[in-house]
C-alpha cells in the first residue's frame, strides 16, 4: 500500500507570468478525491523540496459535480476535481488549468466566454412577467425526458476544453451553448427567439465551426447527448438556410 502521494501541479502566479511546475507530496488516504488532497496541501503548503510556498489555488464549490466550478485537466484529461477519485488515477497525479481559457492563477481560469456564449444564443425563456399567469403548457413525458437531460449542463467547460475546434484564438461558441440553444428551441415559447438563436448559430463561431471530433460527448460529466444536440441544431439551421434561400 502506498503511503504517500505525489501531485505535479502546473502553477502560474497571474495571467501574465509564465507557468511552472511544482510537486507536492502528501499523505495517502484511501477514498480521497483531488479536492481533498488540494485541501491537505492548503493545511501544509510545503513543496517536495521542503520549501514553504503559497497554497495552490483553485475554484470549487459544491464538490458533488453539479456546480461545474472545479473543472481542471487531470492527467491530461479534463475532469471535475471533486469527482476525480485518487484511487482511480495514475500516479503521480498531474494537475493543470484548463487550456482553452485565460489562466487567472494556478488552476483558476476565466470561463466568462462560456457565459457570454449563453447570452449570444439567448438561452432563456422570454417571459411575459413574473406575476400569476396560471400554469405553464403541458408537456409529454418523452419531451420532458429529452429536455431535462439537456438542461443538466452546468457550464463546466469540459466539452470545449476537449474540443480541438475551440481555441483561444477563435470565437467558436462550443457544444455547451449549442446544446442550450437546442434546449430553448424545444421550449415552445416565442418562435421569434428560436429564429434569432439560429441566426446567431449561422454566423462565424456558430454551428459551422464544429469539426465533428465528438470529444465533447465523450468527456461530458453529465452524459448530455451533445452530438445529438449539434446534429439537431444542424438540422434546424439547414431548414433555415432553405427558408432563407427561398424567402429572399
Amino acid at each position: 500500500m502506498l503511503d504517500t502521494l505525489t501531485f505535479k501541479i502546473k502553477r502560474q502566479n497571474n495571467a501574465e507570468s509564465s507557468p511552472y511546475w511544482e510537486n507536492f507530496v502528501i499523505q495517502y488516504i484511501p477514498n480521497s478525491n483531488v479536492i481533498s488532497c488540494l485541501m491537505d496541501i492548503q493545511t501544509n503548503p510545503v513543496n517536495s523540496k521542503g520549501e514553504k510556498v503559497a497554497p495552490v489555488v483553485w475554484q470549487s464549490n459544491c464538490l458533488e459535480e453539479v456546480c461545474g466550478s472545479c473543472t481542471m485537466v487531470i492527467n491530461g484529461k479534463v475532469h471535475q476535481a471533486c469527482s476525480a477519485l485518487i484511487d482511480k488515477l495514475e500516479k503521480p497525479i498531474i494537475l493543470e488549468p484548463m487550456s482553452k481559457f485565460p489562466v487567472i492563477r494556478d488552476l483558476i481560469v476565466d470561463r466568462s466566454r462560456m457565459f457570454d456564449a449563453l447570452k449570444k444564443v439567448q438561452a432563456w425563456v422570454s417571459a411575459d412577467g413574473y406575476h400569476d399567469l396560471g400554469p405553464g403548457d403541458s408537456q409529454s413525458q418523452s419531451v420532458q425526458e429529452v429536455a431535462y437531460k439537456l438542461s443538466e449542463c452546468m457550464t463546466c467547460g469540459c466539452c470545449v476544453e476537449a474540443c480541438p475546434q475551440y481555441t483561444k484564438d477563435n470565437n467558436f461558441l462550443g457544444a455547451a451553448a449549442i446544446n442550450q440553444a437546442r434546449l430553448f428551441n424545444i421550449h415552445q415559447k416565442g418562435n421569434d427567439i428560436t429564429e434569432q438563436r439560429l441566426d446567431t448559430l449561422m454566423q462565424e463561431g456558430g454551428i459551422s465551426d464544429c469539426g465533428n471530433a465528438q470529444n465533447c460527448v465523450e468527456v461530458c460529466p453529465k452524459s448530455i447527448p451533445l452530438t445529438e444536440s449539434i446534429a439537431e441544431i444542424g438540422r434546424q439551421v439547414s431548414g433555415k438556410l432553405w427558408r432563407n434561400i427561398f424567402k429572399a
Binding site: W124, A127, D132, L133, P135, S138, Q141, Q144, S151, H187
Partner: peptide, 18 residues
C-alpha cells in the same frame, strides 16, 4: 407554475401535467 413557465423541466404525469 411560474418556474414551470420559465422553463424548468419538471417531471410530468402521463397526461403531461406536473
Amino acid at each position: 407554475n411560474l418556474m414551470d413557465r420559465l422553463g424548468v423541466n419538471f417531471n410530468r404525469t402521463p397526461e403531461g401535467n406536473l
